[in-house]
Amino acid sequence: MSALLDQLTRRQLLWHGDSQQLAYQAVASGYPELDQQLAGGLPATGLIDIQTDAGIGELRLLLPYLQQQQQHSQRLLVFIAPPAELSADMLAGAGLDLSQLLIITPGQQAAATANVAARHKKSAEKNQSAKKFSVQQQALWAAEQCLQSGCCATVLLWPAAISLAQARRLQLAAEQGAASMVVFRNASQTLSLPVNLSIRLQPDPLGLQVTVLKRKGSWPAAPFQVNMQQKWPALCLSGTSGEPMRRAG
């Protein structure tokens, strides 16, 4: 009997209702509440979709994870199309190795090609129309190349929008190169993507309010709070003091 069961399990015809096997290898996120909810931590490979507003602590949530990813495999960390200049202080302070870090800002070469185009006036207009649609494409292309190459640990991408097919393609590339990829999206984009993990972040006085929208191999759970008071006391409205120092504006 057990031989038969074994065989069926191996052929994936039998499914245990109680076992919650993790579909991916987890890396501790550095925040105990999050690790507990995600059964171990954030996925080491594959896509992580984060729906968030800018500036509420989304990068702080990931910093320990990024540091581990980079240190564990000695591979690159790639930031593609960040919304503003990245500050070295913050990243180095979190223990990231800056020499193993790439920043890709597509669209920068516009100036370079403009020189060529200026020399050949005829093609200037054609060139510009080609440029417009390609900045987003270039970011995705760069992401795919980085993921596939096998020499990047994690790629962070700030896309304006991402389609289902593109996400699927990136997921495959990430699996191929054993890399993980974090996609930051606006909360308004509700399109569900084929990803390993999808979470929504909301601001909270003590840190972040996290909702797990989708996790491979598990059920959705209730929103929970991630307390950042220990790691980032300065960036929390501590409950005890209550009184803000001052108001400006």
């Binding site: 202080d89 020499s99 890709i104 920068q108 070469q109 100036a111 270039q138 760069a142 190349q145 980085c146």
Partner: peptide, 15 residues
């Protein structure tokens, strides 16, 4: 990456 995006599009970061 540099071939496709141009040399200035790819950079590192120093403190």
């Amino acid at each position: 990456l540099q071939a496709r995006l141009g040399r200035s599009a790819v950079s590192g970061l120093t403190l």
